[in-house]
């Protein structure tokens, strides 16, 4: 690079001198060289323009200054999904497991809140019967499972059909889309149960979104049915919570260390 620069400087200097005293450049043969130089120069123009077009400057990542410098939580999960969707590396496998575990836990918690036992919740997830959404339902079904029933088979073809059409236009992968669906279903379920009011456990504080709409659609009879079902269910849930709490207290020292890892 340095040598090239020196050669360049010398050539430019000779050129500048030649503009004043043309005799200096007499050693350069005039005719044949000029067309060669012209050809090379055209290549040079093309090369230069391409480099300019492809130039991708590394811009600095500057902090937010004028407003409060925070962002909502959740970027870790988004990154994990992205890594998991990229491919077959070990990191991708690890992240996929993390994503699946976290979604499963959330789904189980949701079903427990709705009044199912933890075992029943896991069963429903494995069988793919926990939701009507085919894509979300098939997410927790083990790949080597023999359960695929009529509904699930239907769901799979449905998903496939949509996948093929959508994948032509979408840049997201199947894994990314199904995680998206699972989260969307969980979000819907959450606002639905909040609207019904979870038995004797009152949601203090802000009213959940969409309360009015959900309430007005439902007829009285269904509300009653749902209410009574829910009360039983929550009583059960509360019971199991209490047992958890007491066992937690008994073995406090032990479990203190057990839970030491906190959040990864």
């Amino acid at each position: 690079m340095r040598r090239l620069l020196a050669v360049g400087v010398v050539v430019v200097a000779v050129g500048l001198v030649a503009t004043v005293a043309p005799g200096v450049a007499d050693f350069v043969p005039a005719d044949g060289l000029s067309s060669l130089v012209g050809f090379l120069a055209v290549l040079g123009v093309i090369g230069g323009v391409t480099r300019r077009a492809r130039a991708d400057p590394d811009t600095p990542d500057l902090p937010t200054l004028e407003t409060v410098a925070v962002e909502p939580p959740g970027s870790q999960f988004d990154e994990q999904v992205k890594t998991a969707a990229t491919g077959e590396t070990r990191r991708a496998g690890k992240d996929e497991t993390a994503v699946r575990t976290r979604l499963r836990e959330a789904a189980v918690q949701m079903l427990v809140r709705e009044g199912h036992s933890e075992t029943a919740a896991n069963e429903q997830l494995r069988a793919g019967t926990w939701t009507d959404d085919p894509e979300a339902a098939s997410f927790f079904v083990p790949k080597d499972s023999e359960i695929p029933q009529k509904l699930l088979a239907e769901a799979r073809t449905d998903v496939k059909g949509r996948r093929s059409v959508r994948s032509l236009f979408a840049e997201t992968t199947v894994f990314e889309r199904s995680t998206e669906r699972v989260v969307a279903v969980l979000d819907e379920r959450l606002s639905e149960t909040a609207a019904m009011g979870a038995g004797d456990v009152t949601d203090y504080g802000r009213p959940e979104r969409g309360v009015g709409a959900a309430e007005s659609e439902r007829t009285d009879a269904t509300v009653d049915a749902a209410e009574s079902e829910r009360t039983d269910a929550t009583a059960g849930a509360a019971e199991s919570e209490r047992t958890d709490a007491t066992t937690g207290t008994d073995g406090d020292e032990r479990s203190d260390d057990g839970a030491a890892e906190g959040r990864p």
């Binding site: 988004d78 959330a106 918690q109 995680t179 998206e180 979000d187 203090y204 849930a237």
Partner: peptide, 24 residues
């Protein structure tokens, strides 16, 4: 929590579940 991305929505859902667990 926000609800812009999937991860943010999941955080919001998980937080609501935690809140109702505590209330329970």
């Amino acid at each position: 929590t926000g609800r812009e991305t999937t991860g943010q929505t999941l955080e919001a859902v998980e937080r609501s579940l935690r809140l109702s667990r505590l209330r329970g």
